[in-house]
Amino acid sequence: MLIQILLILGFVLVFAITWRRFGQNVITFREASLWSFLWLSGVAFTLYPGLTERLASFFGVGRGVDLILYLAVAIQFFLIFKLFILNEQSERKITNLVEREALSHLNEDEPASANRPSNYESNG
């Protein structure tokens, strides 16, 4: 069927891109392997649709398509959460830079009645 050919071509393409990115040191071997497992699973399920039905009945889900949808939603939740965490890490780096910049001016603007500090100690 045409849809099977298109899907398999798509999976082969992203599989090739995955390993190209590994070759370019953009992703780690572990990441490339995990993504490859996903793409190859896609090829297997496209070629043998009965596999999803068997897997679905193993997990107690009615149809194979439903199982794929549930998994897709779960994977998307995971990836979105990971993006939030990466964003939080970037935010903290920005804060560290802002703090460092702010503290660099501390001695310039000291009030007339205050003592000049002698040392700087940071816990961050």
Binding site: T95, V98, E99, A102, L103, L106, N119, Y120, N123, G124
Partner: peptide
């Protein structure tokens, strides 16, 4: 002390705490 961009109350307190340690 001035944060060039808004970073939140916790960040401001952390900067202030580090400055206070610096000021002995």
């Amino acid at each position: 002390i001035r944060h060039t961009i808004n970073r939140g109350q916790g960040a401001a307190l952390r900067t202030g705490t580090h400055a206070a340690l610096h000021l002995t």
